[in-house]
Nucleic acid binder design. Structure first.
Lengths: 336, 336
DNA sequence: TTGTATGCGTTATCAT
DNA sequence: ATGATAACGCATACAA
């Protein structure tokens, strides 16, 4: 039958059902009443021809945009992936389709390519996962007139764009205060990369130390990987003053833990280690890792809600914070 | 100036540049030669008006589809996330945009909702991450006339769709043979869920055992999480015949390792444990986990290439396998 | 090389 | 309640 491969259109359905094109359109969209009789005929034709509306045409004429873009540097690391999950889930529930673009590097040209590819879509809005500098640069590269919200790893003071954020400043304080309350003289910090001079968690760590009148050690910079936590720990391991380490994420904490354990140092007897994020392996580790839980999936949902609110009401939404929670497990205890 | 918020169109640019609409179209698409003089004027107008082509209109008229859909049950677990990464990377390089839809459950209605949402896009093709039964069901729910390829966790004999797959049958054999060669009388298996009666790796495990004339123990069924590996190990832990365990993934291996170590059983002295996937934590565990490395990112790339080939040539591509590799570390050794 | 005219599949505005 | 018809923004065959 259908010899040429062009998919059936409204006209084809109309012809087969013996009604006008606009009647078919009406039963498809369902916005206007149509007699039961015709509706049935149309549905039959739709089924038979296996008709699917052409999204491009619909968008063109209606101007209705139903896809949102998510831009991120990474999609596999725990925090990023979980945030994406939250966004996708909320977006799908609201009838939006999600296109994802990863921007691998901070190179301006690279960013431009990604932005252009994404913008070639007919977008309702965009969400940037702004856990790193690439994210920040991406947000800045996006046009002013597109509704853009960010999922951020920390609060931004003077952000031009609305954002939902993890209150990791508070998380950093919480963890540090906990360690101090255990009797540690001070707390060292192995830090993840930050979008600013220092991450929110590093900031909270510093504040808590200062507030307690404790010395503020120089922080050890790492990236996100267990290996880098391992190496950072090696630089601390011979220092007898190091009795407690707050790590910027659980990967670092696990890497650091391994560095100590390999050398025969027991945790928490010899050093206390606290992580960040509460990712699945944290509680499986031996000893299980005390950590600051951050609900990334919720962050993703909130971020989408911000965007949705903007699109619905037309007014810029205000920022939204997700609170961290200290999860006490086995890797931290009183010194000695 | 631009009081009403309608974005600039080809007409606006043409007016401002003082040329015809089609000239503008030509410089935008770049498919036809335009004099340098006019091209410059047009570009200036484009810049000034900040013109962006309307993707919907372009698609409608050209019929060119440039977005592909990825459907998956999950996007955060290691294998899924890494596969998605590979797909996205390859697709972006080829100029495609990726929309992602997660199908949370095996419920037919749920699947239909996801499929319809996705298909409402103007798709060039779709990729299903078929690591589980939901993936299989999703593939089946997709229309025949849409180019669909699958990224599978194992080879499918009579698959209706082209697919790239992890040759985890071979991986299972490799790991089992290795354990046997170490001197173990047999190897137990803690299995991940499978899309068929048993996973490819379970099949390879069984075959290797049979080929060696070793007894084939009943397998312990688990899901994907460390916790379930922990629990499965608990059911094995009192059996003195269990000297070697092959786990369906590294999460299970780590969970199982913890179960033994918690009870004071040393690894590999007391039991050998081998994992699957080689995810980042495998080498951080103490002892580091011997595992079968699977390159999920490569799987993603290959899957996209299959689809791309199909779209370019118009002919169904043939399947593509990614080979596993045994990574020997510390968690397996000769018994006693 | 450049401009004019037509049509892509749909929704929305008119009549009827 | 239903049917004609005019946009929507762009690419392209054709004319100049």
């Amino acid at each position: 039958m259908n010899l040429d491969h062009r998919p059936a259109g409204l006209v084809d359905v109309a012809a087969k059902a013996g009604v006008s094109l606009s009647t078919v359109s009406r039963v498809i969209t369902g916005r206007t009443r149509v007699s039961e009789k015709l509706r049935a005929k149309v549905m039959a034709a739709v089924d038979e021809l296996n008709y699917r509306p052409n999204a491009a045409a619909q968008m063109l004429v209606s101007g209705r945009r139903s896809t949102i873009a998510v831009m991120a540097r990474n999609t596999t690391r725990f925090g990023y992936a979980a945030t994406l999950e939250g966004i996708e889930e909320a977006a799908r529930a609201a009838g939006y389709v999600v296109v994802i673009t990863v921007i691998d590097s901070n190179d301006a040209e690279e960013i431009d390519r990604g932005v252009n590819l994404t913008l070639s879509q007919f977008l309702a809005g965009a969400i940037v996962i702004e856990f790193d500098e690439v994210g920040v640069a991406t947000t800045n590269a996006l046009p002013e007139d597109l509704p853009v919200v960010a999922a951020a790893g920390a609060r931004r003071r003077a952000a031009e764009r609305p954002h939902a954020y993890l209150d990791d400043y508070t998380g950093g304080r919480l963890a540090t205060e906990y360690l101090l309350s255990l009797g540690h003289r001070t707390v060292h910090h192995i830090a993840i990369p930050a979008t600013r001079a220092q991450s929110g968690r590093a900031w909270g760590w510093r504040r808590a130390l200062q507030a307690a009148g404790a010395p503020v050690p120089e922080l050890a910079q790492a990236d996100y990987s267990p290996t880098s936590g391992y190496e950072a720990a090696l630089s601390l391991i011979d220092d007898p003053d190091v009795t407690a380490i707050l790590c910027g994420n659980d990967e670092l904490a696990i890497g650091a833990a391994r560095a100590y354990q390999e050398r025969g140092r027991r945790i928490p007897e010899s050093v206390s280690i606290v992580g960040f994020d509460d990712q699945p392996f944290a509680q499986m580790w031996m000893p299980s890792i005390t950590t600051v839980a951050q609900d990334f999936v919720d962050l993703g949902r909130r971020t989408f809600r911000l965007l949705d609110e903007w699109l619905q009401t037309g007014t810029r939404p205000s920022d939204s914070a997700v609170r961290p929670r200290l999860v006490v497990r086995e890797s931290a205890a009183s010194p000695r």
